[in-house]
């Protein structure tokens, strides 16, 4: 199994950032190449820019600790766990971490690499577009 982590420190309060990245329906607003996210209970189906649909199960959506976890249940994955954490750094900034554990290994880099671009988009949004 491979594990990839991407993170960004963002100059915005943790709760504001969590409102975006912790909402499973809002994924297309910040994750590159995701065109749609449909949530039904703990099931989410996202559609990729290539048109590929990916079914997922939401495992954790904890607004207290600000942790969101999900697993992709289709596609090439034999194992997948995605974890988003938003840490309050106490000075109206926060650290957002997006971890991807996957088999096949290569998929961890495919998802994790896109997640890194997504976190940069979140940082841009809060620090430059909403200020």
């Amino acid at each position: 199994m491979a594990s990839i982590r991407r993170s960004q420190r963002i100059a915005a309060p943790a709760e504001q950032v969590w409102e975006l990245v912790g909402d499973p329906v809002r994924l297309p607003e910040w994750f590159p190449g995701v065109t749609e996210a449909v949530v039904d209970g703990d099931q989410r189906t996202i559609t990729l820019g290539s048109g590929i649909p990916l079914p997922e199960t939401i495992l954790t959506n904890d607004p207290v600790t600000r942790r969101f976890q999900y697993t992709v249940t289709g596609g090439l994955f034999r194992h997948h766990l995605g974890t988003i954490d938003v840490f309050d750094l106490g000075d109206d900034t926060c650290l957002v971490s997006y971890s991807t554990d996957a088999v096949p290994d290569v998929m961890a880099l495919v998802i994790g690499g896109a997640a890194g671009a997504g976190l940069r988009a979140v940082k841009q949004r809060f620090e430059h577009e909403e200020s």
């Binding site: 190449g33 995701v34 290539s50 495919v110 896109a114 671009a117």
Partner: peptide, 17 residues
């Protein structure tokens, strides 16, 4: 830009589409 791009998020991969 990378080829392995199921999200089709890179320009080179999107232009043909």
């Amino acid at each position: 830009e990378p080829f392995m791009d199921p999200f089709e998020r890179f320009n080179e991969n999107r232009l043909a589409t």
